[in-house]
Design a binder for these strands. Structure first.
Lengths: 374, 374
DNA sequence: ATGAAAGCGCTAACAG
DNA sequence: CTGTTAGCGCTTTCAT
């Protein structure tokens, strides 16, 4: 192996190459080969490509990262060499040297909830278009892991971090802010953003649904809500508006609210309606914190012979794939998840490339999709 | 700068704690500070920690990666210094040097389909427990991007790649095999694995459902299937078994099959049933390639006054959150996604740590969950 | 337009 | 148990 390299090197890379091999032809080469064998791979490096193309290693780098500044003939030779060697740049090395990892971390409570999916999907795609990859972290609703997760993320020196409704601990927020890494908080409009925000107002959604019910002459509303912070804020927006409008489920005391554990299920929607009806037999409207809960309400209503929407109006949240198709079709609050993902991506990429983000707080709003259930 | 470096190198670490500040008070520090300022952050490094703890940099590394081999007193001093500095190891650098990135890439067609979610979630969690992170790639059903995606992934030198039903092109498969990176193919049991496999037989599922219908005295079955390879294999397993059992939807020609575009929706389930009924009015059983399609069938049947299960038996695939709760509850094929994720994680981690994987092909099987719709 | 040199931050290998 | 040395593979900087 040493000999072969010497030949190639002498031609191409002049003295340096020769020196290199002389120095390395003994123990060093052996060690390298051993190391490669040990880890089972033998990736071509920028040096291999450079040698074959007869250029300096950094010229290879230029061809890849700044093709315009390389003469066409040289470029072609390098690209050819890349093809011949099957060279795939080691992004760890590049990221280390350039301090630009082209990695973006997304943190979600859990990926298994259908809500964030479209946003994550769009985020991944949009990042991909800019040559960035997504690393996924699950905070798993447990604060204990947040700190370890944060280390794992910051350790990768990502170009940005996209948060979806997590990072509760003040300590975590402090560390994020201190890290200097661009942060995008999503799915919410906090008054105290760490950095950038793209989301919508959960309170406003609750209010909008209450007003909607009110316009529809519903006067005894209830809420079935998953036990999470954002859902709670939609609920409180709803309850406040309902009080203002003098709607009264469960008498003057206010809206009947049933909280069920997250993640929400169809089953808890069914039992939730049962409980609400026990407390307020004249219930005529229900706002659910997820479409799955709403489907449960629809199901339970059907089982009890309660007519929707005649006896009971139902509104969900999320506009899931099944929501338009069920009978009756489900009125629900729609949020443009993909748009959130795309905006978050563009924010991070802009920052990462040194551009300024002119709108660091974006409200994407929401829409109430009226269907058969109201 | 040359001079400064010489000094630093000569001293290196013996006198370093004492001398460091003197040496660096000149241009070196300025340059570093400038570099840090340029990239907007100022992460502490192993050298900073070492200086404060009065040890060599690699001792810091040992404390983090191999605490047992460091004396307790030293360890405590180092941990203290880490706390003081807020040091978070740069995993790009560590990964580069050790050739162990602790990164695993997962490739899915799209994350937005609910099917793979639980597996990805479990995979992420299981990897996390071993100090690995997940990077997510979406092949987006388009082969064109596969190659670019592959470069992006291989470039990160991941400890493993987990594939879920993708990588069609022979070229991509060849490159993966050549990369020497541990590969786990999931959700399927291919006869020509690239490396490791954890999945189940789609043909066997089709057969099992056909046999199930047959035992239930259904004789005119139909299939509504999404337009993807795996679903097609479930369908062909079903059709073959149905033929063997002499069931005949649409007369002797065989099972009535309606293919709908992926991703499947409730709406295409509804229209699918309509079309199947037009072709085979005596249809008495339908196997759907997803629970969403099955929900559409249930919905359409309800709209037409077709009684399920009396007139029509319905079986789905996926056992989604709503499937147990709808009326009638949905009989469906259940696959243990989290288990697939966990096994894939353990395979990759084992390989990455040089251990042998004793069972490189795992069939996790499936179960037919019988509910009200049959 | 291209090359030479240096070094990102870490850890492997060896020495003691 | 701890320190010294070297270098992972790339890109930046400076020189030409």
């Amino acid at each position: 192996m040493g000999a072969v390299n010497v030949n190639v090197n002498i031609d191409r890379y002049r003295l340096q190459a020769r020196r290199f091999d002389i120095v390395n032809s003994s123990r060093h080469t052996v060690a390298m080969a051993a190391a490669r064998a040990r880890r089972g791979t033998r990736h071509a490096t920028v040096v291999d490509v450079a040698r074959i193309a007869g250029v300096a290693p950094n010229t290879v780098s230029r061809v890849l990262n700044n093709p315009a500044q390389v003469a066409e003939a040289t470029r072609d030779r390098v690209l050819d060499a890349i093809r011949k060697t099957g060279y795939v740049p080691n992004l760890l090395a590049g990221g280390l040297r350039s301090a630009r990892s082209r990695l973006v971390a997304a943190v979600v409570p859990t990926i298994a909830g259908p809500v964030f999916l479209e946003a994550i999907e769009a985020l991944t795609d949009a990042l991909d278009e800019h040559g960035y990859q997504l690393i996924l972290g699950q905070s798993g609703y447990k604060t204990s892991r947040e700190d370890a997760l944060l280390d794992a993320i910051i350790g990768r020196r990502p170009a940005g971090i996209v948060l979806t409704g997590v990072m509760h601990s003040a300590e975590a927020r402090r560390r994020l802010a201190a890290s200097g890494i661009p942060i995008v908080e999503t799915w919410d409009l906090t008054r105290t953003p760490i950095d950038m925000v793209v989301g919508f107002s959960h309170e406003a959604i609750g209010e909008a649904v209450a007003e909607f019910f009110h316009r529809r002459k519903r006067r005894r509303p209830g809420v079935i809500t998953g036990d999470d912070e954002r859902a709670a804020r939609r609920t409180s927006g709803f309850v406040r508006a309902a009080a203002r409008l003098e709607m009264k489920g469960r008498g003057p005391a206010g809206t009947a609210v049933k909280t069920v554990p997250a993640p929400t299920t169809l089953a808890s929607g069914r039992s939730g309606l049962a409980e609400l009806l026990a407390r307020e037999p004249k219930l005529d409207a229900v706002f659910c914190s997820s479409d799955l809960l709403a489907l449960g309400v629809l199901t339970e209503a059907h089982a009890r012979g309660i007519r929707v929407p005649h006896d009971l109006a139902v509104v969900g949240f999320g506009n899931l794939p099944f929501s338009a198709g069920v009978i009756p079709s489900l009125t629900t609050v729609h949020v443009d998840g993909p748009r959130i993902g795309r905006i978050a991506a563009s924010m991070v990429v802009a920052r990462s490339e040194g551009r300024k983000v002119d709108e660091p707080v974006v409200d994407v709003g929401f829409s109430l999709v009226e269907r058969g259930s109201t």
